[in-house]
């Protein structure tokens, strides 16, 4: 039977992708951020998951406002990125696991989640940046991927409570899959940041640190915020916390914190990294 072995969180901002491309790992601005990741990769080397379910939001590459799904799940054999308008270079395509994708889609629709299924799907920095951070070795990488895209572009966004429930349903769906697989769930984005408006550059360290704690020990507390609360407390893009809540919902009630790292700022963002091991 398939099993969710753990969950991880990471910021996914494009500036990280540029810093990786520029190999700025020892750069004084970037070093305190990148230094959080070796411990996460060491955990992955130990656990060796077969599949990563990556919860992210598309930032206007694969989805436009003519068809803006709340929850979209990739069901392709592979996923490629694109230049996103600012000339990003193509990465090797990410292998998918369409059989598990369809199992998830079947189980979730049957469980009253109104999924948009995507048999072709471009993945943007929201997906590729965490993948590059956790699996920098694209030659040796053996993990297959399932992208789960959540609307954080256009309000109404799904409520934090709904997102946590989606995560729980993903957890049940994985557990019901007949194949013997180790699955890790990656919650990307966040923490506090705001790109637009006169409040651009808003960061809320206290709120971020509270989220880093609560997401581990009491995620339900975070589901009581409204989207509007999250925008107010974490900035317009800080609402990406809902992506973490989906990850956390997919894990069991009790998790072990393997690793945690927080750094301000990278570009306009408070960056939070967590590695959580699921209770066996």
């Amino acid at each position: 039977m398939a099993r969710i072995v753990g969950g991880m969180t990471s910021s996914h901002i494009p500036a990280i992708g540029n810093a990786i491309a520029g190999e700025l790992f020892e750069d004084p601005y970037w070093k305190p951020f990148f230094d959080g990741y070796p411990a996460a990769r060491a955990w992955l080397d130990k656990v060796r998951p077969d599949v990563a379910i990556v919860i992210y939001n598309d930032h206007g590459l694969n989805f436009f406002l003519d068809k803006m799904p709340t929850f979209a799940i990739g069901a392709a054999a592979s996923y490629r990125n694109d230049d996103e308008g600012w000339g990003l270079k193509p990465l090797p395509p990410y292998p998918g696991d369409p059989e598990l994708s369809w199992h998830l889609i079947n189980a979730l629709v049957n469980d009253e989640f109104d999924i948009c299924s995507c048999q072709e799907m471009l993945v943007d920095h929201g997906f590729t940046v965490p993948m590059s951070l956790f699996w920098p070795d694209r030659v040796g990488m053996t993990v297959r991927t399932i992208p789960v895209a959540v609307n954080t572009v256009q309000h109404p966004l799904p409520t934090p409570a709904r997102c946590f429930k989606l995560g729980q349903a993903i957890g049940r769906a994985v557990e019901s899959y007949g194949r013997d697989l180790k699955v890790v769930v990656v919650g990307t984005g966040g923490l506090s940041h705001q790109l637009d408006g006169q409040r651009a550059g808003f960061i809320n360290k206290d709120f971020d640190l509270m989220c880093m704690e609560k997401i581990v020990s009491d995620p339900e507390a975070l589901t009581r915020y409204s989207i509007h609360d999250l925008v107010r407390l974490a900035g317009a893009q800080g609402a990406e916390l809902i992506l973490w809540l989906i990850m956390r919902g997919a894990l069991g009630g009790t998790v072990t914190k393997v690793h945690s790292h927080y750094h301000i700022p990278i570009s306009n963002t408070g960056a939070g990294l967590l590695v959580l091991e699921n209770a066996a």
Binding site: H103, N106, A107, D111, A169, R172, A173
Partner: peptide, 8 residues
């Protein structure tokens, strides 16, 4: 909920 078993 489990994935529904494949019906007849």
């Amino acid at each position: 909920m489990a994935s529904p078993t494949r019906p007849e």
